[in-house]
Amino acid sequence: MTRLACLDPCCPIDTQAALESFVAFSRQLMDFHDIGWWCIHYDLDPDYFYCNDAMNTMFGLDPSRYRHSIAETCPIAGDFNRYVAKVDQAVADKVFVDYEALLQGKAERYDNIFPFRAPEGTIRYFRSQAMVLQRDEQGRPTLIQGLIVEITLEVELQQQLQADKLHYKRLSELDGLTGLFNHTTLLQLCEKQLHEARRTDRPFSIWYLDLDFFKAINDEAGHAEGDRVLRDFARFLKAFFDRPNDIVGRLGGEEFLACTLGPDFAAVQAMKQRFQQRMKDVPIVSGRKSPPHLTVSGGIIWMDPLQIHCTLDELIHQADMLLYQAKQQGRDRLILSHARC
């Protein structure tokens, strides 16, 4: 029976016979179908690694052999690393850096999780651990061994859990009918946007919008038609406020709020004109007496970057007052003004 005494530093593996004995014993000891084992002896056989049957199976290596070329077939140390790089170059680079740190004695253990794109195209995930068993008098590694296990199922499950969390978090932030940000999330995001405007000295604007005669739509065409109108208007708003820094959501009922970061006063004026022109393309409301098309009234407050004392509540209140003026002046219009803070 092969003895474990060969792992004692006082009994180094320094002959080919000792190495073969160590490999045979380790392959027998690590005879598990789902745990890969490997070792490299940098003095006796530096260009090859030894492994068990499980590792052969994991990486599609020749099952009749337990000694393989590092350059051609080692998943983490040879050209096989290109299959890691195909999925994530940063991880592939980290594999080499961490492995080198182990060899140089800067780390006691190597422990990495990496994706691996198999030649047939499937992506699998592995955890690889290694440690140096022997070093020479100069501290250079002579014998290193490692374990490798497939964790594809665990990684995919974790990825799905993260995706589900993001999905449900996203749903909690949205208005159920329109798909826009809901009241709470909308105000939180606008507050952050206002803070960013102050931090970067950029203009900021608030758009307070209200659908005209919405109660009449519900009364004359029915609530189902009213819901359709809200969804159509929400799609219009999403398409209009489509810049990366634009935020738009539903305050409640037929009231909506949007904020923009960056456009100067002249640009917001031009946006206002485009908004009113494009509103004519919003689907006609059926089942109504008059008017036969959807209109909106709104107030827009533009804040100069120097007006750092304006709060979001103040800006929204001022926009709401402009909305009231638009209603008083006959509806179907937007009124734009500078912030007063």
Score class of each variant (00 low, 15 high):
71 A>F: 13
73 T>D: 15
74 C>Y: 09
74 C>N: 12
74 C>E: 07
74 C>I: 04
74 C>A: 11
75 P>K: 09
76 I>W: 07
78 G>E: 08
80 F>V: 01
80 F>N: 10
80 F>S: 15
80 F>I: 02
82 R>K: 14
83 Y>R: 11
83 Y>K: 08
83 Y>A: 01
84 V>G: 02
85 A>M: 11
85 A>S: 13
86 K>C: 12
86 K>H: 15
88 D>K: 06
90 A>P: 07
91 V>T: 15
92 A>Q: 03
92 A>L: 03
92 A>D: 01
93 D>Q: 13
93 D>R: 12
93 D>C: 11
95 V>A: 09
96 F>K: 14
96 F>W: 10
97 V>Q: 12
98 D>H: 06
98 D>T: 10
99 Y>D: 02
100 E>F: 02
101 A>S: 12
101 A>Q: 11
101 A>E: 09
102 L>K: 00
103 L>H: 02
104 Q>Y: 08
104 Q>L: 13
106 K>G: 02
108 E>K: 12
108 E>D: 15
109 R>Y: 13
110 Y>N: 01
110 Y>C: 01
110 Y>F: 14
111 D>H: 06
111 D>I: 08
114 F>Q: 00
114 F>Y: 15
114 F>V: 00
116 F>H: 08
118 A>N: 03
118 A>S: 06
118 A>K: 12
119 P>K: 09
119 P>V: 04
120 E>P: 05
120 E>Q: 15
121 G>H: 04
122 T>V: 10
124 R>Q: 09
124 R>I: 06
125 Y>M: 05
125 Y>K: 07
126 F>A: 06
126 F>T: 04
126 F>G: 01
127 R>I: 06
128 S>P: 00
128 S>D: 10
128 S>W: 01
128 S>T: 07
130 A>S: 10
131 M>N: 13
131 M>L: 14
132 V>C: 14
132 V>G: 04
133 L>E: 09
133 L>S: 08
133 L>Y: 12
133 L>Q: 09
134 Q>M: 10
135 R>F: 01
136 D>Y: 03
136 D>L: 05
137 E>V: 11
138 Q>P: 02
138 Q>H: 15
139 G>H: 08
139 G>W: 02
140 R>T: 02
141 P>R: 01
